[in-house]
């Protein structure tokens, strides 16, 4: 077969699959979102979801969570990745252990942390055992919004730092060791080597890791549902309740598009900030 056509023929099945199961539903959802009750085009659905009193809170909660969780995960993943790549023996073992949470679904992760924080949970037994509290406390109530927030953030950090770690470990492995030797000879301290060499050379991996994490952070749902229930509304939770509690699929579609818009916006920002100039890659 003609070598010019062959590559396109080979990617055809995947393209068809994506069109059928991704683009087509996406078009349907968009249609739904922009459809008015009478069947015409309108912004009605968007207006409805945005004006609902829970929208600003869920927007704030989602953004706040992402703003706290993602930087902490980034810092932790960078630290862990640097440590792992300095190890000579047992490196794979440590990586396996650190990536165990990756194998656990987000709902299961939420339930695990619920078992820690709930009234009859580990935390209470422990505090009771060492005598800090005399009877079990219910942490996850509307009186303690910050504890609810903290529990969700902790669960997310525990659950999803490893995905960044894996990407960053692979990225650090690509940086030739000679660069560090040159940096040593030319007087860069370990910290300077991290900020001047590792970090800039890691930009492609950082892009991937951050885009992935930020998108997932805006889609947070199951962990919040398990730990916060209705105490901590987030965008995805709102989408769910429009669709399945209120049976308003037009509003749910509008919410989904809003989340998509935010994700695309942040993706572009991340790609822009961490872009690598032409000719400047390893």
């Amino acid at each position: 077969m003609n070598a010019r056509i062959l590559p396109y023929v080979l990617i055809l099945p995947v393209t068809l699959f994506l069109c059928l199961f991704f683009i087509y539903p996406f078009v349907l959802v968009s249609q739904q979102a922009f459809q008015a009750a009478d069947g015409g085009w309108s912004m009605e659905n968007f207006q409805e979801v945005v004006e609902y009193w829970k929208f600003p809170i869920s927007m704030k909660n989602t953004l706040l969570l992402a703003a706290i969780v993602v930087p902490v995960q980034l810092a932790l993943a960078l630290l862990m990745a640097t440590m792992v790549s300095k190890m000579k023996k047992g490196r794979d073992m440590v990586l396996y252990i650190w990536t165990i949470p990756l194998g656990i679904s987000d709902l299961a992760a939420g339930i695990i942390w619920l078992a820690i924080f709930e009234q009859s949970g580990f935390l209470n037994s422990m505090l009771h055992g060492i005598g800090v509290v005399d009877k079990p406390v219910n942490f996850l109530t509307y009186q303690n919004p910050w504890i609810v927030f903290l529990a969700i953030a902790l669960a997310e950090i525990w659950r999803a730092t490893a995905i960044m770690l894996v990407i960053l470990v692979a990225g650090i492995g690509l940086i030739p060791k000679e660069y560090y030797e040159a940096a040593d000879v030319f007087g860069a301290s370990k910290w300077k080597q991290f900020t001047r060499i590792t970090f800039p050379l890691l930009r492609p991996s950082l892009q991937t890791a951050l885009v992935l994490r930020v998108i997932l952070a805006f889609e947070i749902f199951a962990v919040v549902a398990a730990l916060g229930g209705t105490l901590f509304p987030v965008l995805m939770g709102q989408t769910y309740s429009y669709q399945f509690d209120l049976l308003n699929s037009g509003a749910a579609a509008a919410m989904a598009l809003i989340i998509l818009g935010i994700s695309i916006g942040f993706t572009l920002i991340i790609l822009r900030i961490l872009r690598v100039p032409k000719g400047a890659s390893i």
């Binding site: 030739p176 000679e178 040159a182 040593d184 000879v185 030319f186 860069a188 060499i197 890659s281």
Partner: peptide, 20 residues
């Protein structure tokens, strides 16, 4: 440490930093 020895070095694979 290498930086305090008054030396400079040229590496076989140059080790010219790609991002600078």
């Amino acid at each position: 440490s290498p930086k305090d020895r008054g030396i400079a070095m040229v590496f076989q694979n140059y080790a010219v930093f790609p991002h600078l």
